[in-house]
Amino acid sequence: MAAEIRMERMTSPEIGAAIEGGITTVVVAAGAIEQHGPHLPLFVDAEHGDRLAIEIARRLGRALVAPTIRVGWSAHHMAFPGTVSLEKETFLAVCRDYAVSLAHHGFRRVCFIPSHGGNFAPLAEARDSFNEAAGPDCSVDVYADLAEVIGVWREVAEAEAGFGNRVGGHADIAETSIMMTMYDGIVREELAECGRLTTPEEEPELIRRVLSEGFASVTPNGILGDARGATPELGEKMIAALADRMAAHFEA
């Protein structure tokens, strides 16, 4: 059996021994608990973050996985029942305190991976302040390329099924496929439908509207893209491709 790398499943002495043994990189996922259309549960981003963090840590090697920050900045989803959002300042304070705590115990590199679109820009903007708070012996890095995430999903969906145009970045064929591969029976497949379709050229303006006017203003059913055609096999390939890309960022 492979050694455990998820810190919350390890004992304190085990973590201390790992750090003493030179395992000083830690991956932190920052997810969300928010609406994902009529067919997906609220925990999509948090659970996807759990899986991505493990896959990235394995690719990096000699790295542990911190507990996922499960609630993020989701103010733009609050028109939909069940969404839980932190204020942006609260979310960033939690992330900063994570970095400070991990640095205190001897981790020398903290790698934040947003698994919720709304967390990307705030984390990128706060990277310098995180580094200052963590101190000179710890480097804090953030994967901050949301466009690349959507691009990876489009590449996989197009190559595997010819459905690249169904990727929109939220509750779409990508996130639906990812949930299918992670949990059997959790997707309400009969409710999967088309939402707001987008092109790469339209995305900057659409993101601006989402953040300023709310998600419901651009997609009443809460879907960006099209959820139809999702499969577990597609989800597995998307997880692997995105983990490869994110790990490459940190290795560079």
Rank of each mutant, 00 (worst) to 15 (best):
I239F: 15
A227W: 07
A247M: 04
A230W: 01
D226G: 12
V210G: 07
A230L: 02
G225T: 10
E233N: 12
T231C: 02
R245K: 14
P232C: 00
A240V: 12
R228W: 09
A241L: 09
G235H: 03
G229W: 10
L211E: 13
D244Y: 07
L224Y: 02
T219G: 03
T231I: 04
L234M: 15
I239T: 13
G222R: 00
D244I: 08
A243D: 02
L234A: 11
G222S: 05
R245Y: 04
N221W: 01
E213D: 14
V210H: 04
I239D: 09
S212G: 05
N221V: 00
S212C: 06
A227P: 15
E236I: 10
A243P: 02
S212E: 13
N221F: 01
G225W: 04
S212R: 09
T219A: 15
E236L: 14
G225R: 09
E233Q: 15
G214A: 05
L242R: 11
A227S: 15
G229I: 11
S217Q: 06
A227L: 14
R228F: 04
M238Y: 11
G225A: 10
S217V: 03
A243N: 06
V210Q: 06
P220I: 00
I223E: 00
G222H: 00
T219H: 05
A227Y: 10
T219Y: 01
G222E: 00
A240I: 14
V218C: 01
T219S: 15
A216L: 11
M238L: 14
L242Q: 12
L224K: 04
F215T: 00
D226W: 13
L211H: 07
D244S: 12
R245H: 02
M238I: 14
S212M: 06
A240K: 14
P220D: 03
I239A: 11
A243Y: 04
G235K: 01
L211T: 10
I223F: 00
G225F: 07
I223A: 00
D244T: 11
S212I: 04
L242P: 07
S212A: 12
E213A: 12
M246C: 05
I239Q: 11
K237A: 15
S217F: 08
E213L: 11
V218S: 01
V218N: 01
A241V: 09
E236S: 14
V210F: 09
A216V: 10
E213C: 11
P232Q: 03
R228P: 08
T219E: 05
M238W: 08
G235Q: 03
A247P: 03
